[in-house]
Design a protein around this nucleic acid. Sequence first.
RNA 1: GCCCCCAUGGUGUAGCGGUUAGCACGCGAGCCUUUCACGCUCGUAGGGGGGGUUCGAGUCCCCCUGGGGGUACCA
Length: 449
Amino acid sequence: MRLRFAPSPTGALHIGGARTALYNWLLARGQPDSSLVLRIEDTDRERSTPENVGQILEALEWLEIDWDGDPVFQSERADRHAEVVEQLIAGGHAYRSTAGPDEVKAFKAEHGNRGFRGSDEGTGAVRLRIPDEGATVVRDVIRGESSFENALLDDLVIARADGTPVYHLAVVVDDLDAGITHVVRGADHYSNTPKQLRILKALGAPEPVYGHVPLLHGPDGKKLSKRHGAASVQELRDAGYLPAAVRNYLALLGWGYDDTTTFFSTEELKAKFSLERVSRNPAIFDEQKLRHINGRYLRELPLDELTARLEALTGRSGLRDAAAISQEKISTLAEFWPLAGFFFDGPVDDPKAREKILGSKRALGALREARDALAGLDGAWDEPSIEAALGGVLEAGGYKPREVFQPVRVALAGTTVSPGIFETVALMGRDETLHRIDTAVRRSDRPGD
RNA sequence: GCCCCCAUGGUGUAGCGGUUAGCACGCGAGCCUUUCACGCUCGUAGGGGGGGUUCGAGUCCCCCUGGGGGUACCA
């Protein structure tokens, strides 16, 4: 099978578009003799800047979705499109007409509910002749069959008066020339399929197998857009999601393999994904579930890779050790810095945490005792020793664990949330730990400082 | 307006005429735990409405309702 996907270059790769790209990719990569073509729908002059095209390609690469050969730009195929239009006119399948929206409206007013039929004026836009009898039936792997009465279809404009081809003509010709056998695309194209089928018939060409993937909606049930938060894969990337997790989640959005499996390796996805099992109803993008899946992937990531990704995202280096003790506490890469940034940038300024945790004499006392116990640790500055030292404070002072650990945490991190306390102390090192505790004690002794 | 599609808990889904309607996210409770998480246990919540067909319907048919898409010399 030969597949294609065709994002429009608006700069941001919409999640819905990413999902259809993924489905095409899984289908193509899951079969030995398949190939995948990337076509860029770049005839919209305003949106298809080189920057936008570049961003779309980057987004696909980030998702690790690859294609075969170079991207095909629709705009580069103008000559071929024009040639086909001429061929259709010569064959009597199309004609030139100056009729515009007003004429079409007038025609419908006069003839009742039926498709527009024009007459050959030898000039103007090119319209495809649609028969009055019969129906055009769309066969779709996902949604089954449905038929559209020809009499209801308008004579379709396939090229503008200036000779430029219209989308429907362009896709059909491009797919035909590329030998595309399976067209998997968004369901927003479903009602347009009969038009494209008419062009195919006029050309005497075989129809591809269609699969229209349901659209994605935001939490309010409306079309997914920027106001729903992350709506593009670029935003997902910046929010710290992992490509493999995004792929896993997207595959599951509108598709299910069985009654229990949630996590699929990419290999499993390639082997198990099938169009027949794609759902017919529109799905709502749920970022919480993506987070959950992402957390699982994050925790299973090799430390080196986690570190590399964190360093790429934050632009910092030397994150490996902090990454190691944070890995099981974060569910997106973006959560790392709020959790562990204090190692590098000093304690966070959180007056509330300071007041709540260090605001009492007892807490300060515990903190001092912890400091002394840690200071007395000569040589052995590792987790077991630290745990033993702090445990001693607990016992000697009759403290509950949190009465000691939380003050230490706030002194080091500035907040009540951090990686494990022993790991944190161990990683911070003796000098820095004692220094931060001293600073915190001094500061809390003189409130308002 | 017209055409087409869709309809299982809040969300994503499984089911394919006979099930205590399964799984996952979320949410709630508990356990674990040095905070937060993770993990574990239990729980919460579901086939839009009305007609058929059938011994039996979430599953098949029809109508309604709701939602979505299309209806451009946009893509």
